[in-house]
Design a protein around this nucleic acid. Structure first.
Length: 303
DNA sequence: TCACAATGAACAA
DNA sequence: TGTTCCTTGTGAC
């Protein structure tokens, strides 16, 4: 799940739960003790996401940057009295089967009766604001940086449809996409070309536009680039709204509702190698491209 | 109990 | 292109 939509959801949730509040920060695991100490007791003034990067601004001009990578995830638990959010989101990030909510462990006699509950596993960073706790595990990056350093990171990222809105985002994306002869399947994953797309969205977007992943990015028209940009924007917004990467647009409303819950039948080609293409019936392929699994339909996506 | 995969990216060579 | 780092859950034994 840690593609762009997840990080925007975290930013949105943290905006509601933490912004304007004083936080106690710690590193139960110990690997971020110094960083936690430098922000503990401060208040969070803003949280925002660019691509897969999360930035939390503190009132002492320091910024916490978090990148979940493949494994990273946030677990957020609220005290039952917290009324800020109607529904608490847990396990935001890498797939975790066990979603927990304080006071709502069904059939779990080990449920803690204290708040905040004791950290479970390798918690790099714990943020507590009296009635809400967020635990971060397994991030690729978690560091305290300056405004200048944060700006440098933002600058090297490609456009994110929710950050660079309007025509400018499409223009920058199109320029960068068409400027390279590298396979388009690689370029869509390049965070300096477009921010937030990961392995699932990469495969699904290419299929939705019936594009050959191996075709040079530069071989495409500005019109195709524009369509890709708009599609990524709508997929991202939908992913943020639902919390799910549901990339099929051929489902009936009831099928869609089911797919949002079941984790089955959400994708055109992702993790469907060896199965029949939903459009043409030929066998979905899987190649390893630059150490990542690339799923595609060799027939629908032939150039 | 153990190997392995996983929605990522930095780095070396 | 290959290696390394980060952590957890699963499915095979």
């Amino acid at each position: 799940m840690p593609e762009g939509h997840t990080v925007h959801r975290v930013a949105r949730l943290f905006g509601a739960l933490f912004v304007g509040r004083t936080i106690e920060a710690s590193s139960p695991q110990g690997r971020f003790s110094q960083g936690a100490a430098s922000i503990s007791g401060r208040s969070i003034v803003a949280v925002d996401a660019v691509g897969k990067q999360l930035f939390m601004d503190l009132d002492n001009d320091l910024i916490v940057r978090v990148h979940l990578g493949i494994y990273g995830a946030w677990d957020v638990t609220t005290h039952p009295d917290n009324a800020e959010v109607a529904q608490v989101l847990t396990s935001l990030g890498a797939p975790r089967s066990r979603a927990r909510r304080f006071g709502e462990w069904e059939g779990d006699h080990d449920a803690p009766d204290v708040f905040p509950p004791p950290p479970v596993g390798q918690v790099r960073l714990r943020l507590v604001a009296d009635d809400v706790v967020a635990d971060l595990r397994g991030p690729t990056a978690c560091e305290v940086i300056t405004r200048e350093q944060a700006d440098a990171i933002r600058h090297r990222l490609g456009p994110d449809p929710l950050v660079m809105t309007g025509a400018r985002g499409q223009r920058v994306f199109t320029e960068r996409l068409l400027a390279t002869k590298r396979p388009i399947g690689l370029v869509l994953m390049d965070q300096s070309v477009v921010a937030g797309i990961g392995n699932v969205y990469r495969a699904e977007i290419l299929f939705r536009h019936r594009l050959d992943p191996y075709r040079p990015a530069s071989a495409h028209s500005p019109e195709v680039a524009g369509a890709l940009w708009k599609d990524w924007g709508s997929l991202l917004r939908d992913g943020i709204a639902t919390g799910v990467m549901l990339t099929r647009d051929d489902l009936s409303p009831s099928e869609r509702k089911k797919a949002l819950r079941s984790a089955q039948n959400r994708h055109w080609v992702y993790k469907r190698e060896g199965k029949e293409c939903r459009v043409c019936g030929s066998v979905v392929a899987m190649d390893v491209m630059s150490a990542r699994k690339l799923y595609y339909c060799p027939s629908c996506q032939a150039s």
